[in-house]
């Protein structure tokens, strides 16, 4: 089975870690485990996971503190946008509010129902993917605008040498071999130069095409994840 995402799970209870390791691995996730906030921060850098499932109650630094470090500390700036789902046995509203304030994406109260956890994982992934897609598309629009400007400028620019070629051609005395040879030489030079310009325009269009294909690939990986989770939920409901 292809890996559909890497999840870092942080909990000081071994049972929780093992439970998620087995259940989420079956769905195609790669699971990385950590038993403390410090270990979580180390493994974050080491494995670059796609999602963090984080228990709030941990020895030394709490889940909320880990979240604060990830979101604000320059040391973790490469990971500052990683989705985080917080776990806690305490269902106090104040703690939930605080968790959201420091930047967790979702919150689950223990003891949890696995289908709920899965639904939240899906929702968080969906959110992040959509945000990424919007960003990608915005970039694409900007690139298309730039291409458009280039095209307008290019068409304006290229008219001058073409008009000039035409003028020279019209002025030629067809009986004058020397004039014809001179024109042919000029034509060859101008042709090569204009072709070189066209090539660079073509390069840019091809680059755009490649970027577009990349956007589609990202869409596909999201569908793949949705598909697997839906299948799982359907079989669960039948049992």
């Amino acid at each position: 089975m292809d890996i559909i995402g890497k999840i870092l799970i942080v909990d000081d209870e071994k049972m929780t870690l093992d439970f998620f390791d087995i259940t989420l691995s079956k769905l195609g996730f790669e699971i990385i485990k950590a038993v403390s906030g410090e270990e979580a921060l180390d493994k974050l850098k080491l494995y670059s996971p796609d999602l963090l499932l984080l228990d709030n109650i941990l020895p030394n630094i709490t889940g909320i503190e880990v979240t604060q470090k990830i979101r604000n500390d320059k040391k973790y700036r490469n990971f500052k946008d990683i989705p985080i789902i917080m776990f806690s046995a305490i269902g106090e509203p104040n703690e939930k509010v605080l968790s959201f304030e420091v930047g967790v994406d979702d919150y689950i109260t223990k003891p949890f129902n696995f289908s709920e956890v899965l639904a939240r994982i899906r929702s968080v992934f969906r959110h992040k993917k959509l945000a990424q897609q919007v960003l990608l598309r915005e970039k694409r629009v900007a690139v298309l605008e730039s291409l458009n400007n280039n095209l307008i400028a290019f068409t304006k620019h290229i008219k001058k040498p073409l008009t000039e070629l035409n003028e020279v051609a019209n002025g030629i005395d067809i009986n004058d071999k020397y004039q014809i040879q001179k024109f042919m030489k000029k034509f060859e030079i101008d042709y090569n130069e204009m072709l070189a310009l066209l090539n660079s325009l073509e390069d840019e269009i091809m680059q755009l095409q490649k970027n577009g294909d990349k956007c589609k690939e990202d869409d596909l990986s999201l569908y793949n994840l949705e598909d697997r989770i839906n299948k799982y939920i359907k079989t669960e409901n039948k049992l």
Binding site: A142, A153, L197
Partner: peptide, 17 residues
């Protein structure tokens, strides 16, 4: 031979904002 104009610097390049 054909200098670039004010609205084009002659470089085809993706200029993202």
């Amino acid at each position: 031979k054909y200098p670039v104009s004010d609205d084009w610097d002659g470089v085809f390049e993706m200029k993202t904002k």
